[in-house]
Design a protein around this nucleic acid. Structure first.
Lengths: 198, 198
DNA sequence: ACCTGAACACCGTTCAAGT
DNA sequence: ACCTGAACACCGTTCAAGT
């Protein structure tokens, strides 16, 4: 099926190989160090070769984003909080995952499977179609915003600046990021249940 | 009080002038076009002069962010939805406002006055301190995430790409961004009222 | 179909030196 | 106290040309 490959070193690459390399660079250098030149180096290619596989960097980043948020084991459940937590886990699995996904999503270059799952769950909870969409978007915005913030702080802590809290306030001596995340999700889910009762 | 200025063209600048120029560049060229060189040009200065006023670009961006979200007319109200709407209005008042604020906030370089107002309002609604913090953060993440997405789409529409909807789904023929925003906020506020009753 | 090599028009940041 | 001029080490993108 696949054409016979050359030596491992000189084999020609496909889109998937480029995305593989990009994710490796992302995990090691973060989004600030994710340059086209660095990706090309990881593949032993010239930068210009990347533009045969992708029209521009944003398109490559969108493909990376899709890899971050997809996965056959995606949680499809009636439990809204569980779907939200699974999305957060996927974002946390790669350095700056939330930031990369946030921008691809905002640019309209990414379809979020988790959003569809959230819409389904909200509908089954008793919401009409439009309201289920609003509920899903509200949860998605919270998950991405919270995790974005959490990951920045995480890296800042590694570099040696602020304490690794995901809280938005300067000083805070309370729960862990995971607890704060769960509490925020619970707040939104409670609002959804209220709307379902109306 | 202020030292006597030279000619208008050759006067020496302060931090405030640099921020003024940066905001003008931001509104005209967006965050992608907000370069140190462009800001220096607007001030008739060399790029290197900016580094006398600010240690680096992030610090300058944080000062711009502070200008976007501050203001003496800040809404201090018991109405959580009103405070959230006022924050959105401030972000919408400048091109890519949500994105710039989001990153300054994540880097821990920005204090959000609206967050304190939200905490107060949540406390007065009956939440304990820790829960009020979670409630405020949840609202802030939603406001910034929603508005970020809304502004990207807005600009994409100007450039001529997708339709100007703030919805996260590919296709959607429902309400306006303002209505979707209000609906999302209402969902969270309903959750907060539920938590206050517990 | 996939890649090289070289160029273009930019970036943020540093630093000695000027006034 | 505030700014210039020049440099350093990078960027994303394009394009003719090769195999």
């Amino acid at each position: 099926m696949t054409p016979a490959p050359d030596d491992a070193a000189s084999a020609r690459r496909g889109k998937a190989d480029v995305v593989d390399a990009a994710m490796a660079v992302l995990d090691e250098h973060g989004i600030a160090g994710l340059s086209m030149r660095r990706i090309a180096d990881a593949l032993d290619l010239q930068v210009s070769a990347l533009y045969w596989h992708f029209p521009n960097k944003q398109a490559l980043l969108a493909a990376v984003s899709a890899r971050i948020v997809d996965g056959a084991d995606a949680v499809r459940s009636d439990d809204l909080a569980a779907v939200a937590a699974a999305l957060r886990d996927r974002l946390l699995a790669h350095r700056d995952g939330a930031e990369i996904v946030s921008s691809s999503l905002a640019l309209g270059l990414l379809d979020l499977p988790a959003r569809a799952h959230l819409v389904d769950a909200a509908r089954r909870a008793g919401l009409a179609d439009a309201a289920a969409g609003v509920a899903a978007d509200t949860l998605v915005h919270f998950v991405i915003g919270f995790t974005f913030h959490e990951q920045q702080r995480l890296h800042a802590a590694v570099v040696g600046a602020a304490a690794p809290v995901a809280d938005l306030s300067p000083a805070s001596a309370d729960a862990s990021p995971a607890d704060d995340f769960a509490a925020g999700v619970e707040l939104i889910v409670a609002g959804i249940r209220t709307a379902a009762r109306a």
